[in-house]
């Protein structure tokens, strides 16, 4: 692998993993506080799956540059993280959480489907594993969007509010990282442009069926993964507090 392709792949894997870590972090804030026991359990499944996916992505990076997954997750600061801003937004209410999860799951499911045929074997193999779980996540969150959208006036209003907030942020999922075009050219990762078309088509149909209106003005759409929301610093401060508490500790 040429070194600039390798560098781009390392950056892409990091972005994929960071998204999962931070989204899992937000999801895990619900554990013990869900609206009903059954859904507490359901969301905890999603969180575990995402942490598993992050571990896989970091693992692929480790094969390329030897970096330790826990070092990456727990000893990088907000300057080093490459997650998108959508996953950083505070957990909000159940409608906010389910909608974000749905928009993300739909993107991920489509991305994985296209990445199945990656020319980079280790990536294609990881995709096979992750895809199984992602299919179920999407079924689950799709069902929630439909039910909250068509439930009561209040649930519809809350979901609409979440959509108005998130729609612009979600577009960042389709902004390539610097150097991504090299990976696309090599057939290592799928081109985000056609994926975005499919994502728009699916999500628009499903959201409208659920009785929601797409925002006419999506508002702010983040474009760079080098900068973040004002929340990331606090997320990391909390998340890394134990790991960084004892500088001498080798294992936890």
């Amino acid at each position: 692998m040429r070194s600039e392709v390798r560098e781009a792949l390392i950056a892409k894997l990091t972005a994929l993993a960071d998204d999962e870590v931070i989204l899992a972090h937000r999801g895990s804030e619900w554990t013990g506080h869900g609206p009903i026991l059954e859904e507490d359990i359901a969301l905890a499944n999603i969180v575990q799956d995402e942490l598993g996916h992050a571990t896989l992505w970091y693992g692929l990076r480790q094969q390329l540059d030897g970096s330790d997954p826990d070092q990456l997750a727990f000893f990088r600061d907000a300057y080093g993280y490459r997650c998108c801003e959508l996953v950083e937004l505070p957990k909000g209410d159940w409608a906010f959480t389910m909608l974000r999860q749905y928009l993300y799951d739909l993107y991920e499911a489509l991305w994985l489907e296209a990445a199945q045929h990656s020319t980079y074997k280790p990536l294609a193999e990881a995709v096979q594993k992750i895809m199984r779980e992602e299919r179920f996540h999407l079924q689950h969150t799709q069902a929630w969007v439909e039910r909250l959208g068509q439930g009561t006036d209040e649930s519809n209003r809350r979901l609409q509010q979440a959509l108005d907030m998130q729609w612009g942020y979600a577009q960042q999922l389709f902004v390539p990282i610097p150097g991504e075009e090299l990976l696309v050219a090599e057939g290592i990762v799928p081109d985000l442009l056609p994926l975005r078309e499919r994502w728009l088509e699916h999500s628009t149909r499903h959201l409208q069926n659920a009785g929601l209106k797409l925002p006419i003005n999506p508002g702010y759409q983040p474009t760079s993964r080098a900068y973040h929301t004002e929340h990331l610093w606090s997320i990391l401060a909390e998340m890394q507090s134990t790991a960084r508490w004892d500088a001498e500790a080798k294992v936890w």
Binding site: V21, A24, H25, S28, E29, T31, G32, D40, I41, A44, N45, V47, Q48, L51, G52, A54, T55, Y58, P69, D70, A73, F74, E238, M239, S241, T242, A243, W252
Partner: peptide, 17 residues
């Protein structure tokens, strides 16, 4: 949210779940 490794975090979520 303060678990020190990815593995410990996953285990703790599974346990509380």
């Amino acid at each position: 949210t303060r678990a020190p490794t990815l593995k410990r975090k996953m285990i703790l979520v599974a346990k509380v779940q």
